[in-house]
Every structure is written in C-alpha cells, then in structure tokens.
Amino acid sequence: MTAGERPADASGTGRRAGEAGPDRSPVPLLRLENISISYRGHEVVHEVSLDVSPGEVVALIGPSGAGKSSLLRCVNFLEVPAAGTVYLEGRPVGFVQRRGRSVPANATALAEHRREVGMVFQNFNLFPHLTAVENVMLAQIHSLGRSKADARERALKELAHVGLASHADAKPAKCSGGQQQRIAIARALAMDPKLMLFDEPTSALDPELGIEVLTTMRRLADEGMTMIVVTHEMHFAEEVADRIVFMADGRIVEQGPARQVMREPVHERTKRFLAAVTDR
C-alpha cells in the first residue's frame, strides 16, 4: 500500500468501503459482497462488502452490537446472510441458484466450504468429552478423511506448535482458558484452512492468559496465515493487523492500514470509539 493512501472512504456504504483499502491480488481470497444479516426482522449488518487478500490480517473492531461477529460468522455460514454473496477464491459459496433464486446450499456443500475456513470462538467450544489431541483429530478424520495415525501425528504437531505438546492427553476441563483457546487454534489449523476467523478469541480470558493466545496468533500472522479477527484488543489490532475495519451500526464506517486508523482516524464515529476504548 502506498504511504500516502488515506483510510477508506467514510461514506458508510459498504460497497465503496470494500473497494478501497490496501493493494491486493486480482482475485481476493475472500470477498463479501453487499452482505446483509437480520435477526427476526432486525437488521444487524447492512450491505457490507469486504475483500481480504491472501496473507492479509484484518482486524474487525467496533462497539458491541456493530455486527462484527455476525459478519465474521457469515463467512462460514454459521450465520446465513439475508442478502449478499460470499466468495472464497472467486467461487460463490453457501448458496446455489435454483429457478433464478438464491437458495441455501445443502449441508454437504456447506460442510465442504467450512473445511476450508478455520474458526476460533470466544468460548473455545472444545469438545469436553475428548482429550486435547482427540479434539484436534476429530474433524481431520471425520471431515477430511485422514487416517487415524495421520490425524494423530498432525494433531501432536499442531499442539506442539501452540506449545501444548505436554497437554495432548488432557481433557479441556483440566486446561486453563488460555490453553483451551490454543488447543482450539490447533484444532482449526490441523484442517489446513485457507483462512482463519477469530471471534473475540481473548474476551473470555484474563489479560494474562489472553497474552499467550495473542502471542500464538501473532506468530500465525507472521507465518502468512490469512486472518480476520474480531477483537477488542487495540494493541494487537494495531501491531498485528495489516488493516483495521471499524464497524458501527451494521456498516463499515472506516477502514485502512492499521496504524493509520488507530492514530489518525478520519470519521467522527471512529474517533469517539477509539477515544473511549484507549482511555482505559
């Protein structure tokens, strides 16, 4: 990206906001196009568009209720958008055209899409009846069809990678929150995802335990993983993300290179939000 580039247009329309931003390859790894999401008639995301390039780390920030998590969850169709299209490597996913209308894809098609997208949840969501290594093995075997031996070898490798080789046979309940979240990261990475989604990965953790998770994520970013991170950790966003996307009221208000958005926000709403969260 050029040094003089201004943060993305602040008009609040997602489409234009999505077109601005850092340089990227011709086909973005992920493209969200005019995504709207509603709960019981209440629209939480309004026509948001966002492109993510391979290797890019995008931090989604904003006040609660802004629609950040909903937008993130719609990337792997845990949330089904009311309108708009999700493209992974140029292919539209989650919907199939039938009689000129977009209808939800069946479970098999969705499962195939989800295998390519890793997700880490706020509450870890480890499987409590399985040990750490079994947590990491399960989907390798039952989604990807790897052999048990291969899955185990890979699982141990991923656990070692997040510094938890010694906890392979521990049940999640025996692990600290930070350890659980790192197991969850290992579980997602073992699937060889093209993209990792993080939904407030440290919000349920003590600051001290959050650090170990953030350190793991930082290393992942350094290794070139494409990541979208919904977070309230402003330091992390500024230091690790390539781009910060600020959302409020279901729209992208402002986006741009991380440092720029943090240090010289253009939009009034962004300034107010950053002032509120960095005061503490």
Partner: peptide, 26 residues
Amino acid sequence: PVGQREASRALGLKPFKEFRLVVLPQ
C-alpha cells in the same frame, strides 16, 4: 451447548457426524 454444534459445523462435520460424535456423547 449450542457452541458445540457450531464448533462441529465450523470444522466441516456433516449433520449426522455432528450428532453422533459431538452431541450424542455429551
């Protein structure tokens, strides 16, 4: 918890496997 189903789905497990391997044992 609903998060268990979400985690299974996010890992690409199909509904029957989600039920058999994650929901039912719990």
